[in-house]
């Protein structure tokens, strides 16, 4: 079982990211489950979503408390108390940030990968300049840093599941795959 927790802000697309990533794993014959942290959604408010991946049928029907990976869509969330709660030591944190991974050593004994997803998403016309939609971009970086799922599967899942500008989203994921720093 491999469990991922997404941290984003309402409007960035964290929930969709969790489902698209699940679809990418499904393309590689994995069993998957993706779900949001249930509640009322508000633009700009912190949002949490989850993806579960397994070689076997997933029967677990409860939350994820000890994830194997964090994907953070807004770097300001790294300053929030409890952001790394439950994350297993030595595991990956993928952060949308223009800083270097070393700038995040304060988070603890984890492996950090960073990429400037805001710029990449904007260059591909995803979202607005105030709220770039970085969800498809950042999962490209996840693919490269963790090696858990192929970028081709990510791009196919993006093309199939993103309703608007699927090709631009897929290209943004590819660029993130190439530019991620870790």
């Amino acid at each position: 079982m491999y469990e991922i927790r997404f941290h984003g802000r309402g409007g960035q697309g964290a929930v969709v990211a969790s489902t698209v990533l699940a679809s990418a794993f499904f393309k590689e014959k994995k069993f998957v489950q993706a779900f949001p942290n249930f509640g009322a959604e508000r633009r700009g408010a912190p949002v949490v979503a989850f993806t579960r991946v397994s070689d076997f049928e997933i029967r677990e029907r409860f939350g994820i408390y000890e994830p194997d990976c964090l994907i953070v869509l807004d770097s300001s969330l790294t300053r929030r108390k409890g952001i790394v709660q439950g994350l297993k030591e030595g595991h990956w944190i993928i952060i949308n940030s223009d800083k270097k991974p070393e700038d995040y050593v304060f988070l603890g004994p984890y492996r950090v990968a960073t990429l400037d997803a805001n710029t990449i998403a904007q260059e591909h016309g995803l979202g607005s300049s105030s709220v770039p939609i970085v969800n498809t971009t950042i999962i490209g970086a996840f693919s490269r840093a963790t090696g858990m799922v192929a970028i081709g599967s990510i791009m196919d899942a993006v093309r199939e599941n993103v309703p608007t500008h699927p090709e631009d989203n897929a290209k943004a994921a590819r660029e993130a795959y190439e530019k991620v720093v870790f």
Binding site: T19, A22, F26, V32, Q33, A34, F35, P36, F38, I58
Partner: peptide, 11 residues
């Protein structure tokens, strides 16, 4: 069940 099933994506 709301959210636990309604909003959970699976195969």
């Amino acid at each position: 069940e709301g959210f636990i099933l309604s909003h959970t994506y699976e195969i």
